[in-house]
Amino acid sequence: MIGRRVIAALALAAALVCGGAAAQAQSLVTSLSTHRVLIGSNYTGAQIAVFGSVEREGRTVARPDPNDVVVTVTGPRRHILVREKERQGPLWLNSEQRRYGDAPSFMAVLTTRPLAEMGTEEDARRLQIGLKNKLTPAGAAQSFDTGEARFTEALIRIKSNDGLYQEIERGVTFLTPSMFRAAVSLPATAPTGNYDVSVELYAGTVLLSRQQTSFEVVQIGFEQQVAGFARGWSLTYGMATALAALFFGWLATVIFRRD
């Protein structure tokens, strides 16, 4: 909590320094509460705060459209297979499937207000805002693959149930007319790796400015050593696990021996 205040103050200070140099009429300055999420043995997820400030140049006339901020957090990409069960005779078996070659393992989209209020669906598709549009490559809207949407929706639904995909309307709040903050909650099941954070400033459906930053999720201490050992010394690791199994098995017979 204290960290957030300090960072907010820093962000403001940075804004004052850099703001004047921005080429666009309105520009963004952003800051994260942390760039490293550490996983220890009691890790149960994390909260990351995104702070930002909208800088206006003195001379420009304020646009009539209200400003919208969209924060998108994208986790490490994975190859995901989505399968659909269909009735075949008396059984329900997996039949059709779609592959998502580089779907994010974690994705959070936070906006100042509902996407529907910001513009039409077509606008959102063109600007690639929202979970669905992030998963559909640009220009794929006219795809002949009629089943695609069904599978994308299923992927979002399943991932959302696990908290790994989030679309939070009004997840970005303006603290002052120019300062905003957004809180991203990272579930414990979110994988280790690099997370990209993209902050976009819109006026109506016009993109005014975009800022990119990132944070990483890493294991530390014992967890890191175990994971490293399992990968680097896999045969020794396997034999150690097997020996532990045999040892505990023998130990139990000694402890519980009656005679």
Binding site: R78, H79, I80, L81, V82, R83, E84, K85, E86, R87, P90, L91, W92, L93, N94, S105, F151, A154, L155, R157, I158, K159, P191, R231
Partner: peptide, 18 residues
Amino acid sequence: EAVVKPEEPFSITIQGTR
């Protein structure tokens, strides 16, 4: 599991991880 209509007909498998 095989005969009753599943509540969620879709399932996801993550492949090609580390």
